[in-house]
Computed example of a mutant assay.
Amino acid sequence: MMSKIKLGILGGGEDSLIGILHRVAANMFDQFEIVGGVFDTNHQKSLDFGDKLQLDPNRVYRDLDHLVAEEAKLAEEERMQVVSVLTPNFLHFPMAKQLLENNYHVICEKPLTTTFEEAKILNQLQKKNNKVFAVTYTYTGYPMIRQMKTMIANGEIGEIQKVDVQYYQGWINPLIHDKDKRSSTWRLDPEKSGISCCIGDIGTHAFNMAEYVTGIQVKDILADLNYLYEDNPMDIDGTVLLRFSEKIKGVLRASQIATGEENNFSVKIYGDRGGLKWEQENPNYLYLLKEDQPLQVLKPGHAYNSDFSLEGTKLPAGHPEGIFDSMGNIYYGVAQAIKDNSKFEGAYPKLHDGYRGMHFIEQTVASHKQGNVWVSMEEE
């Protein structure tokens, strides 16, 4: 019987919104065993949380330095093999860098870093040590997104000619209109979040999805961002034109001030023979549009779906799957890669996806500040 992969976690403690998502995902396919970590900057809170998870208190560490030093003292078969970084944005780079330098596989929340220069450093380091590095663009794990990717690759909608991705939320409204609140939240602090809020947080999901499902990289972008208040240094809304080629164009719309919206992420890809539409709030429905046929609705768990889609489907047809399942599929893809047993390209978002995301964030802000002009997304 193969042993489980030993997983450590940085962040994701008692008050974390994403911690439970990662922990459930890690346990979903029985591939990982959570053995310890640093769950909070307050060590006592970290210990208390580790106790709730029934972890050995000796493996609930004060900080990352402590974790690296103490794990190195353990027998190789007992050590953590992979560490998930679930901390605020500004900690992603130093933590991921230290983990790579100490030969850990890494699972990192997005955005990958706070600057493109930092992303370049991680990219080079990962190429050097060849460790598995996943960036959790969570929505790529949905079975019907994987079905969409497969259908597009197989030419079922023909040559792509239009891409439309939208990610609308309204959660920042209660903060942005209050001067004290918008000045105190870390999401609107460039020192902690980087140069972008909306594009960095949710726009990068939409950008990654556009490249993921089409299999085509964006070449140029033109951005118009909204900061709403002069004393707010971070965008909270934006529209970005995408140019994949002279014949393939697209638009990306992202907002955190779309009043009343919860998590309205939609992906629409149109080819010369058909179109595909998917909405995150109804993730089990993939719509296939043909000019000479009735609208078709594809759902997970059916034999007509691709092997890639079916591998990520855990329940019989008609049983809803959601965000936990999507993240679980990413963790499963990481496990397969660590065990050198990968089956499908795109089973988890790689470091290069996070690298592209950081380039997109910086070029989007540059396009806006230069007067809403076209800028290149060609990699340096």
Score class of each variant (00 low, 15 high):
Ile160Leu: 15
Lys162Pro: 01
Asp164Ile: 13
Val165Lys: 02
Val165Gly: 02
Gln166Arg: 14
Gln166Leu: 10
Tyr168Val: 00
Tyr168Thr: 01
Gln169Ala: 09
Gly170Asp: 13
Gly170Leu: 13
Gly170Phe: 11
Trp171Tyr: 15
Ile172Glu: 11
Ile172Phe: 15
Asn173Pro: 00
Leu175Phe: 14
Leu175Thr: 12
Ile176Thr: 10
Ile176Cys: 10
His177Phe: 07
His177Cys: 00
Lys179Ala: 11
Lys179His: 07
Lys179Gly: 04
Lys181Gln: 11
Arg182Gln: 12
Arg182Lys: 10
Arg182Met: 10
Ser183Arg: 13
Ser184Pro: 06
Ser184Val: 04
Thr185His: 02
Thr185Val: 15
Leu188His: 03
Asp189Arg: 02
Asp189Met: 04
Asp189Thr: 05
Asp189Val: 03
Pro190Cys: 10
Lys192Val: 12
Ser193Cys: 04
Ser193Asn: 03
Gly194Cys: 09
Gly194Thr: 11
Ile195Cys: 08
Ile195Trp: 01
Ser196Phe: 09
Cys197His: 15
Cys198Met: 14
Cys198Pro: 09
Ile199Gln: 08
Asp201Trp: 08
Gly203Lys: 11
Gly203Asn: 13
Gly203Trp: 11
Thr204Lys: 06
His205Tyr: 07
Ala206His: 02
Ala206Arg: 06
Phe207Asp: 05
Phe207Arg: 07
Met209His: 06
Met209Thr: 10
Met209Trp: 12
Met209Asn: 09
Ala210Phe: 08
Ala210Asn: 10
Ala210Thr: 13
Ala210Glu: 04
Glu211Cys: 12
Tyr212Phe: 15
Val213Ala: 14
Thr214Val: 02
Gly215Pro: 14
Ile216Ser: 08
Ile216Trp: 08
Ile216Cys: 11
Gln217Pro: 08
Gln217His: 11
Gln217Asp: 15
Val218Lys: 08
Val218His: 06
Val218Ser: 05
Asp220Gly: 05
Asp220Val: 01
Asp220Pro: 08
Asp220Trp: 05
Ile221Arg: 10
Ile221Leu: 11
Leu222Lys: 15
Leu222Thr: 04
Ala223Glu: 04
Ala223His: 04
Ala223Pro: 09
Asp224Ala: 15
Asp224Val: 15
Asn226His: 07
Leu228His: 09
Leu228Gly: 00
Leu228Gln: 06
Tyr229Lys: 13
Tyr229Asp: 08
Asn232Gln: 07
Asp235Thr: 01
Ile236Leu: 02
Ile236Gly: 05
Asp237Pro: 06
Gly238Val: 06
Thr239Trp: 00
Leu242Asn: 01
Leu242Phe: 10
Leu242Trp: 02
Leu242Asp: 00
Arg243Pro: 01
Lys247Pro: 00
Lys247Asp: 12
Ile248Pro: 02
Val251Arg: 05
Val251Leu: 05
Val251Pro: 00
Leu252Met: 13
Leu252Arg: 01
Arg253Ser: 09
